[in-house]
């Protein structure tokens, strides 16, 4: 039989250990070794030489979709490294940024009503998204 005070100490230590474990074990959403990459897909789209306006527009839309997917991955990766309060802040920041992206990409359209318009929109969309991607990646690196 252990003395009551030792039992109490063991109990407190046990609770502390469990708390410590739960704190050192982050709230993981993504397995550590799962690192999807879209770089090669992007490079391949970039290397393809489109032969018509329709192909150029499709190619730029594909590139925009890949850039957006890359941003989505980086956003989730950064979210995983933040605490609850920081996550709420990032969520609101991203919502506002998405809205601003639509406005900025739309403002880049010079050829309203023309077949060049999707290309102008997508090109601006890619540039804006790439800048945000770099920003989120840098912030993710700081939270490692």
């Amino acid at each position: 039989m252990l003395p009551r005070c030792i039992k109490a100490i063991c109990g407190v230590a046990g609770v502390w250990f469990l708390l410590a474990c739960s704190q050192s074990q982050p709230d993981l959403w993504i397995p550590e070794n799962w690192k999807p990459s879209l770089e090669q897909v992007r490079e391949q789209i970039d290397r393809t030489a489109p032969a018509s306006q329709q192909q150029l527009n499709q190619s730029s839309q594909n590139m925009a979709d890949v850039a957006d997917a890359q941003l989505f991955i980086s956003y989730i990766q950064l979210m995983q490294r933040l605490d609850q309060q920081q996550r709420a802040v990032l969520f609101k920041e991203q919502q506002a940024w998405l809205e601003a992206r639509i406005q900025q990409a739309s403002a880049a359209i010079i050829s309203k009503g023309g077949s060049l318009a999707p290309l102008e929109y997508n090109d601006a969309f890619i540039e804006i998204t790439d800048a945000r991607l770099k920003d989120l990646q840098q912030r993710g690196d700081k939270h490692r």
Partner: peptide, 12 residues
């Protein structure tokens, strides 16, 4: 018959 999907609708 060309069909494309572009993000150039209202509000992106």
């Amino acid at each position: 018959a060309a069909i494309s999907i572009y993000a150039d609708g209202p509000h992106g």
